[in-house]
Design a protein around this nucleic acid. Sequence first.
RNA 1: GGUCCCUUCGUCUAGGGGUUAGGACGCUGGCCUCUCACGCCGGUAACACGGGUUCGAAUCCCGUAGGGACCGCCA
Length: 467
Amino acid sequence: MDPIITRFPPSPTGYLHVGGARTALFNWLYARNKGGKFILRIEDTDLERSTQESVDAILQSLEWLEIDWDEGPFFQSKRFDIYRDYIRKLVENGHAYYCTCTPDEIEAMRQKAMSMGGKPKYDGRCREKNMKETPNAVVRLKAPLTGATVLPDMVKGNIVFQNTELDDFIIMRSDGTPTYNLAVAIDDITMGVNTILRGDDHVNNTPKQMLIYKALNQELPRYGHVPMVLGSDRTRLSKRHGAMSVTEYREMGYLPDAVINYLVRLGWSFGDQEFFTRKELIQKFNIENIGRSAGVFDVNKLLSLNGDHIQAADPGALVPHLLPFLEKQGVYPAPKEDLPAIIRTLNQRSKTLIEMAEGALFYFKDEITYDEKAVQKFFSAEFVEILRPLTDRIEALGDFSEKNLENPFKEMMEMTGVKFGKIAQPVRVALTGGTVSPGIFEMIAALGKEKTVKRLRQAEALMLKGK
RNA sequence: GGUCCCUUCGUCUAGGGGUUAGGACGCUGGCCUCUCACGCCGGUAACACGGGUUCGAAUCCCGUAGGGACCGCCA
């Protein structure tokens, strides 16, 4: 078989939402899995609603998700000449015709048909008039009046449409621009696209596009219509269901790998496996395992998966992802800071990068802010008897490794008979200002001797002062 | 309303004639423990309904109900 060529054709009328991202992902994964090509095409034939900002937003989102394209982005608005050629061809070979009916007349037609219990269709009154091109005329495709169009769908199986359900739909508007169905078909034909994975909201459009292929005597692409992503109330995903745009998930501290893992797994499965690396996704993705029913977007599961990806990621690789969130908190780590070491203390306890950044703040702050209650509870003058010698021992340590840091604590426990917990908690408050943090030893190792000793001494002073 | 699609725990799903109907998220009991987490062990909870076919149906067929998508000179 010829190399697989897929595409993603967003229309730039807004940001990239998660449903669109999933469609892009399916096409991209399939192309990558098959060693084929993935094309990006911007469907901006609606000059009114298309904006450059949307184009930029969509491109940025795809780049963030690390979905790369082999060709494009192509813009339909720059291809009007091509469409016009094909439209002319269709008129010449008798598969399309000019129609001068006005929108008002069409509307009246629909009303009448509806009131008589029929379908709101164009009645074909210009169909056999053989009109020449005139200003303000539209072009309609001459759809077959009988028979059926069968869509052999890779996901849903054969879907049969009676041709009597179809009408002579418009392929060129009165202003000379092509309509969606025409532009899509012509683009896919001229770009060699042979595999189309898209939302099943397009199912009813497909016979129209197939008719265009047929009128042009072109080989059909293979279609696969994937079920929709729904909101928690099982209706089409929309703003009231919460965050929809890919960008929002980036800002909320999600990892692109987690987002693609979640999105693909919503509607596709590979046995019981839930966690997939990007590489695995490419290796394992197939069309057979795409589900048939619509899925509800569940942020909770995404969140859980994000935690899994944070945990599984190499700490060094996480640094560039984390940095923006630290900066948002006003922290600009010095080059000498060992970020991977710090991340290692936090990746087991962070579901998002925001959480991780918040959890990391204490490492960088020059002035630690103490939690009032924690100080009340754990800082006492008596504790200085333990804290001072402990600090001395920590300061004297040559090997500041996690393992070696256990020794000063052990010694203090042996000397005083005080349980570990009673020592660790005040130290934790002294070092972080609060009662929640990574494990004592890993935290101290990541903090470094200088900051550790400084903070312990400062706490000591506070304890002596009577808080 | 018409056309098309869909229906396994609350959610995502595995399974597809004989299973104690499996996993994950959530919720929950416990263990681990220096806090919070992680981790581990356990629990909760599903084949929409009705008819067939069959020795046997969640699985195949037909209905019903429910849900969704689309019916533009939007994409």
